[in-house]
Amino acid sequence: MNLNHLAIFHAVARAGSVTAGADQLGVSQSAVSRQLAEFERRQGVALFDRRPRGVVLTGPGQVLLDYAERLFAIRAQAEQALDDLRHRRQGRLAIGASRTIGAYMLPEAFARYTRANPGVELALTVENTETIERQLLDGRIDIGFAEGVADDAALDYTVFAQDELVLIAAPDHALVGTGAIRVEQLCEQTVLMHEEGSGTRAVTEQWLGERGISLRPAMTLASTEALKQTVATGLGVALLSAQAIRMELAAGLLVRLPMDGGPFRRPLYRVLPRASAPSPALEGFLQVIDSSFAQGTRAGNLPGTS
């Protein structure tokens, strides 16, 4: 199939007439008519019904237009990508982040990046770690941020910060004021957790397993906010990121229970497809992330913690 012929067909189909299509292409009407006739002859089907006031697609023409739209959309994307490279940091950056990172850690970095690169649209999706990894492999996002266990050989995991998981309870919970909580005591408590696939749950279960503890949660919730609110009712306890509970601790809605053998720290990862070449927009974003969290990583703390 001749792509020049296909481009002429596409222009005429979208314009609705040979004359308008020729104007868009900057060629004569007679040349477009000849090229269309040759294209139809080669394909062995009529693509247009010629009418006094324009053209109407036939059934085969409708089918071909659908493919042509997709093909030329891909070409436009390729041209846009090259234009982004020429002008640096233009376009769109799709980011996937686990709940804690997306909600409590990245907003300041987003603000810094957008002020420096106003031409780049940042699109954030907040999902659990398992979903983020799948979206990276499918090409639906450009970079991911995960708080789980790094285990996919097709992805490159780089620690960008450290986090601390803390045991929380309502202020009137029976464990408050009893001293450091032993890990074994959790087996006697109503423990709330994120759903399976959550990075926080994965590292929590790994940490407990290393200490010979296997917990069956009394309740699983897919939202950090729902977990906090449920714990605040006094129903049970949960292990959550210190980043996610700062406001509730300050307001006295939740309390942090000391744990024997703490603190319980975990690495946080920025994740990219292995051997991928980052765009200029992504390179700039990685620089912002590295500079935003470098001091916190070295100190073992995170921005905004003390």
Rank of each mutant, 00 (worst) to 15 (best):
L3W: 13
A7W: 10
A11L: 01
R14D: 10
R14F: 08
A15F: 13
G21H: 02
A22I: 00
D23T: 05
V27C: 14
S30T: 11
F39P: 02
R41W: 08
G54M: 03
L65S: 06
D66R: 01
A68Q: 08
R89L: 07
Q90G: 11
G96L: 05
S98N: 06
R99E: 15
Y113P: 00
T114N: 05
R115S: 02
E121T: 01
A123F: 09
E127W: 10
E127N: 12
T129N: 15
T131Y: 12
E133R: 06
L136E: 01
G148I: 05
V149M: 15
A154F: 10
D163I: 12
E164C: 07
I168D: 02
L175R: 02
V176E: 11
T178P: 14
T178F: 14
I181Y: 08
C187E: 15
Q189E: 02
Q189S: 11
L192K: 00
M193E: 08
S198E: 05
A202V: 00
R216T: 09
S223M: 12
A226K: 03
A226V: 04
A226I: 02
L239C: 09
L240S: 04
L240K: 00
A244M: 03
A244D: 14
R246I: 13
L249G: 06
R256V: 11
M259T: 03
Y269D: 08
V271E: 02
A275I: 05
A275W: 14
S276T: 06
S276Y: 04
A277C: 12
P280D: 11
G284Q: 09
F285V: 03
D290Q: 11
G300D: 13
N301I: 13
S306W: 11
